[in-house]
């Protein structure tokens, strides 16, 4: 799930404005300011994922290391069942390692289109590492108030064919430049997923949403929460972390 984190955070990196209007600020400016808050060359994040099942909720804790867009590594810390499970993503390849079986399983091709653990996230969703600007044209289309915070509404429309979501909408805090909500749409315009960011706090001089709820809009249920426990921006991460050898360590 760490990848989802990275993906959503990285997704905003390097957006280019599609057009300027007189009434709204430049989309590029907004996104640059968002990136300044959320994006760094490398990150180490300890986070919790709360899965709301039909019957109970449960929490999984993990630590994740990311370098740029293409490399990431994460390790589950709790609960006991998952402790020691590791995931390595290098470009479009994904390995999952489990200590119980001492096997690393590679997921590739059609497998990546399958959903992760019966959720509505596909592995592919988690692995998208292209910049949003490579995939989407962006423009600011309005403003709205969310939880008392004034936001700009950014609309992103796909300009390439092989993206999972044809268009997206982002609500960015006008003062802190943190996205507070994102919606993902199908080609037909049908809303598929909604991501809500809350608990915005200042960390290392950056505004950062510490809680994120990811919800499949077609299914009933409460969705999944991601909670950031701690985050380091631009730490030094040794290169060997992002190798298959580190899966077994």
């Amino acid at each position: 799930m760490k990848y989802l984190m990275s993906f959503l955070l990285l997704a905003s990196f390097g957006l280019l404005p599609a057009q300027n209007t007189d009434t709204y600020p430049d989309a590029l400016t907004i996104i640059e300011k968002v990136d300044a808050n959320l994006v760094s060359d490398s990150q180490i994040t300890e986070s919790e994922m709360v899965i709301h099942g039909r019957r109970n909720s449960r929490t999984v804790r993990s630590i994740g290391y990311t370098m740029g867009n293409e490399k990431s590594f994460s390790e589950y810390l709790a609960p006991a069942k998952e402790k020691g499970t590791k995931m390595l993503k290098l470009e479009d390849r994904l390995w999952i390692y489990s200590p119980d079986t001492d096997r690393s399983i590679q997921l590739s091709g059609h497998m990546l289109k399958q959903s992760v653990m019966g959720s509505d996230l596909s592995y592919e969703d988690m692995m998208e590492d292209r910049k949003l600007t490579e995939m989407y044209d962006a423009e600011v289309t309005g403003s709205e108030t969310i939880d008392g915070r004034a936001t700009w509404i950014l609309e992103l429309n796909a300009k390439v064919e092989d993206v999972a979501y044809d268009s997206r909408k982002m609500w960015v805090d006008q003062e802190r430049f943190v996205p507070l909500k994102e919606e993902l749409y199908a080609k037909s315009g049908q809303l598929l997923k909604r991501v809500t960011m809350t608990d915005v706090a200042k960390i290392d001089g950056r505004w950062f949403p510490k809680k994120m709820n990811y919800k499949d809009m077609l299914k009933s249920g409460e969705g999944t929460d991601f909670i950031v426990l701690s985050i380091q921006f631009n730490p030094d991460i040794p290169e060997h972390i992002f190798s298959k050898a580190s899966l077994r360590m």
Partner: peptide, 15 residues
């Protein structure tokens, strides 16, 4: 009933 599928590029569509 709402149907969700992917086109040839993998982009979600629903109708």
């Amino acid at each position: 009933v709402l149907l969700r599928w992917r086109d040839k590029g993998g982009t979600f569509d629903a109708a």
